[in-house]
Design a protein around this nucleic acid. Structure first.
Lengths: 144, 144
DNA sequence: GTAATATTCCTCACCTACTTAGCAACTGGT
DNA sequence: ACCAGTTGCTAAGTAGGTGAGGAATATTAC
């Protein structure tokens, strides 16, 4: 990638991981007939429902864009809009079974492989890996 | 992200890394007045010159798109086009000092932090981390 | 209690960056 | 010498983003 990286196999592996981590969603989304943003939205919504503005922040786009993203996901039946119980301004975007299934079946092989990889680590190694991942995340975030 | 991930701090950390790894280039590119693809192109070109088609494959876009990307980078003075020595069809896209400086100064803090993180590992731990990163990369790539 | 301010979500007009299709130049194998 | 394959480009169309701004509701200050 850059001169400083060369020679360190760990940094090289990290670079490849991040590269693949951006190309894979692109490809998976295309196969599913979704845009990358739509797929990422479904992923975020699998954890918990959230409003379009919150989704926009999670994706790093404007609320105008996420409004359109939600529209398209609603059209495909992957999410529904629901009024927020306590706050009349808010809408909750809720993932449907269709959306959940779409994401899950597309990504199942990866989950399985990652779980196996995780299980292959003993307590010490798991700790080492986690600290490295958190550290690398912090290093990247420092650019923002 | 998904039910299976919850409870594993390692997989959670991996997810966060990949998420940040996609949002950071987006932000950095914006600050540099470049598109994400343009920044990624410069990153790839720091290693070695390559043709537009090769670049297109690296980015996961069509050659028509990469033709435009190179055009824009040439306009900004970050790369130049050069005829290939032995193959009359090919063009080599070469990064300029301007382009190299642009990428390097934007990303220097990250390189420093990552190098420090790497240096903090002993031989065994470095090996563990690298195997994990390669394994995770393979797991993701299996979706493509 | 009411006025001022903030937040959420949407629409509209515009624009960037992609895709598909196809063409001209060149290469290498038969 | 030809023909299939590759490279790199252009042109036309489109998807999905931004910026500005408005309507509805909530929150804060007075």
């Amino acid at each position: 990638m850059v001169p400083q990286w060369q020679g360190s196999t760990t940094l090289d592996a990290l670079q490849e991981l991040v590269d693949v981590g951006t190309r894979v969603p692109h490809e998976v989304a295309r196969k599913a007939g979704l845009s990358t943003s739509e797929l990422h939205s479904l992923r975020h919504l699998m954890g918990a429902p959230m409003g379009p503005v919150e989704l926009a922040r999670a994706l790093g786009v404007t609320s105008a864009a996420s409004s359109g993203i939600v529209d398209r996901l609603v059209t495909r039946g992957h999410v529904t809009r629901r009024a927020h119980a306590a706050d009349g301004r808010r809408t909750e975007v809720v993932i449907t079974d269709s959306g959940r299934t779409e994401v899950y079946t597309r990504m199942a092989p990866m989950f399985t492989a990652l779980a196996a990889l995780d299980a292959s680590l003993d307590a010490h190694d798991r700790d080492v890996v986690e600290r490295y991942l958190r550290g690398a995340t912090a290093a990247m975030r420092s650019l923002m």
